[in-house]
Each structure stands twice: as structure tokens, then as C-alpha cells.
Design a protein around this nucleic acid. Structure first.
Lengths: 221, 221
DNA sequence: GAATTTATATAACGATCGATGCAGAAATCT
DNA sequence: AGATTTCTGCATCGATCGTTATATAAATTC
């Protein structure tokens, strides 16, 4: 096996780069996240990353490759905000509730600062803009999200938490719809509190569908 | 007053234009709708509209002005698909249900053909792309939509259909969230049938919130 | 008919697009 | 040390961006 410790900084031969690659990538992510792929120019990027264009191309290859890395940076730094409590929840209901509540917070920047409201993956339009390869990337990222929810619901059926007659696919699509819709609202500046109320209302469908109002109708304070 | 009948075709003096302005506008709308503002170039437009660039600028003024007209064209031709049954419904519940169901159909092109899934206004990112003026335009269009729902809910309170303690703002945001989320799913190719199921599940929250399961839990067939 | 007005076709404008060639600078390797 | 490798700054590449000047064509008005 390759020596696993300290994969970075084998300290290559030539002149070392003068900028922090990860910090530059963070800036690129911020720009792509905010303005989208097409509206972000190389000039925008080099200015924000404070490097020359040859350095950008040497370090990242191309604008498309940089966008792909920015998507990965986004995933590495922001996915946990939304999926940690989902994963550790004891029941599917609590997992879904946590997903929506944590989304409300994460998408509005209530927990860690964000360059703009909404999810970079959800709101990406790079696929429609004529970049099929990047479009596939964001599409598969979205599929992974809905897949996580679906797996959790299937587990809930297997564990007897929810009835076997549950239309898991429809319910998963519903949850995805609510989360996606919250991204658009967050992009328009809607607050975390409002989105939490939305999540609260959305969960009423869960309880109604399962026929078990596990809690009284909330006050939406 | 000016002679109101036949506002178009006063048959001006000079050489008449050789193309159908409305048809050309339809093509422009299709392109902006599909690819977005930044990713659509003047060359794309002149090719699809089958006119030269001077004709485009003579007829529409600029790319930004053309986008604004495309938004208006979109509104004139597609708004009714979603709001007609909403307006004529007897109850707020049926109005909201019709809005979501008709959205499921309209956004997927199940009723009239569409160039791509999703709402042109909802999914527009022109505001984030650095065009503040157009951003205001789509923002106000979104506000008008949520305003319609809110007014209908307030009327429902006044008429006694729903309790006065209803958090109308939260409920309106929830409906907007679901409709917005459906646009994103439609853009990803999700079918009308799936979106109708989502609408069905979403309506469960309404009944649960109002405490009146007016209908039994649906089968989601 | 001639004069006027508007639209089209061709060509091109300056600016910016994404992407590089090149020379010098800064590191490692022998 | 010298040779090699890699990164940076400057300049620039051809292509495309949104937009327009110019000349010609097609209509109306007189």
C-alpha cells in the first residue's frame, strides 16, 4: 500500500506554489455558489483567489475542472451540517425532521456563514447551460441525497417503524421537494425561522400519512 | 382617448418587418427558459429567432430588455395553467390543492408542451448573475405568486373556512416551498405523476394543520 | 414619380471570454 | 556547484461576447 499518512505535501521537486490551494478553492467555491458557473469568469476567479490565470490552470486544469473541485469542496465542508443528525437519529421520523430543520439552518447560514442562501448542488443550473459533464456531476450528487433518505425509509419499514404499505418513493420525493423548495426560498433571503416553520408544517404530512400524530399540532411559534 | 381597438398593426410608415415578432419572442423565451440568461448568447437567439442581430436590437432594444419581454411572454402564456383552477375554487383548500396539482402538470409539460421542466420565474438565477434590474423583475413576480396564495388564505379565514389562529404566513411559505421544490424536480425530469403524488402528500399537512381530515388518507395510486 | 421612413444584410466594433507561450524565479536532485 | 523541475508574472492568443455603423431594400407619404 502507499504510505497513507500525510497524503499531502510530499514536497515535490520544483518551486513550491505561493498560495494556499485550499483557500483559493474556497474562494472559487464561494463564487460558483453565488453566481453560478456561466456568470463566473476566469477574471472573477483569479481576482478572488488572488492568483494569476496560469497558476489557476496549473493547479486546477480548467474552469470545468475547478467547478468540479468546488463541488467537492462544498460537499466536504457543508454536507455534514445537514446529514449528521439525520444519520444519528433513532427513528426515520426524527431523521427526516432533523434533515429539514438542519437544512433550514444550513441553507440560511444560521450555523456557519455562507456566501449566499441555498444549496450549491440543488440550485446549480450548470447542466442546462450546456455543460453535460458537470450536469451529470450535480445530478448524481442530488441522486445521492435522495438515495440516503430512501434507504433510511426502507430501514424504517424493515424495523417496523412505519407500515410496509408506505409509498416510500412518493414520501422520499416529498421530502426532497420540501428541501429543494427551501433552497429557493433561502436564495431569496427567507430567514431560518421561516424555513423552520415550513419544516414544521411539512412534518405534519408525515404524521398524517403514518396515521400516528406522535405529537400534538405544534404552535409554530 | 386613443383609439383602443386594434392596438397593433397601425401599419407604420417604413418597411415592415419581415418576421413575426411574437413568434420570435416565443423562441427567445424558450431559450432563456431552458439555458438561463447568461448561458444564452445573442448568437443563440438570432439563430433560433431566425433574424439578424440588428433586427433583434431594433425590435427588442437589448438582451436585457428581451429577457424582460420573455418573462412577460412566459407569464402571458403559462400563468393561467397554474392559476385558473386556483382562482375559481370554492374553498382555499381546493384552491391550494388545484394550485399544486396543476403545477405538477404544467411544470412537467403534461398539459401544454414546454421546452424544459420547471418554472422560468422560479428557477431564474438572473438576479445572482449580476443583473440586479432583471433580478428585481423575477423577484417581484415571485412575490406576486406568494401574494395570491396569502390573499386566498386570508379570505378563507374571513369566511370561516379555516381558524383565525392559522399562521397564514407559515402556511403560505409552505405551499410556496412545495411548489418551488416541484420546479426543481421537474427540471431534473421527474414525471407529472410523481409530482402529483408529492402534491397529495403535501396536502396532508393542510388537513392535519386544520384538524379536519376532510378526506381519508389517500392511497397515492 | 420623388422624398421619407423603417427593416434587413453585411461587416465590424471594442471588450471580454477561456486558455497559453514565454522568460524568470524558486525550489529539489545529483 | 550545475542540472532539473515547477511555479509565477506578463503578455497575448483566437474566439466569442453584446452591440452598432453602413449600405441597401421595401414600404408609406406627398
Amino acid at each position: 500500500m502507499t504510505p497513507s499518512r500525510s497524503e499531502e505535501k510530499p514536497r515535490g521537486r520544483g518551486r513550491p506554489r505561493a498560495f494556499d490551494r485550499e483557500a483559493a478553492l474556497a474562494e472559487a467555491t464561494r463564487l460558483f455558489w453565488t453566481k453560478g458557473y456561466e456568470a463566473t469568469s476566469i477574471a472573477d476567479l483569479t481576482e478572488a483567489m488572488k492568483i494569476g490565470s496560469p497558476s489557476l490552470y496549473a493547479a486546477f486544469g480548467s474552469k470545468e475542472a475547478l467547478y468540479a473541485e468546488a463541488l467537492d469542496y462544498y460537499r466536504r465542508h457543508y454536507d455534514a451540517l445537514v446529514w449528521t443528525n439525520f444519520t444519528s437519529a433513532d427513528t426515520a421520523r426524527e431523521a427526516v425532521r432533523a434533515l429539514l430543520m438542519d437544512s433550514a439552518a444550513a441553507l440560511t447560514g444560521a450555523v456557519v456563514e455562507v456566501p449566499c442562501g441555498g444549496c450549491m448542488v440543488t440550485l446549480s443550473t450548470v447542466g442546462s447551460e450546456g455543460h453535460a459533464e458537470l450536469g451529470e456531476l450535480v445530478h448524481s450528487a442530488r441522486s445521492a441525497s435522495i438515495g440516503r433518505v430512501k434507504v433510511r425509509l426502507e430501514r424504517a419499514v424493515a424495523e417496523g417503524e412505519i407500515p410496509g404499505t408506505t409509498d416510500i418513493h412518493a414520501l422520499t420525493r416529498y421530502i426532497q421537494t420540501v428541501q429543494n423548495g427551501m433552497s429557493l426560498l433561502a436564495r431569496d433571503g427567507v430567514s431560518c425561522g421561516e424555513l423552520r416553520k415550513v419544516a414544521e408544517v411539512a412534518m405534519l404530512s408525515w404524521d398524517a400519512y403514518m396515521g400516528s400524530p406522535a405529537e400534538p399540532v405544534p404552535e409554530l411559534t
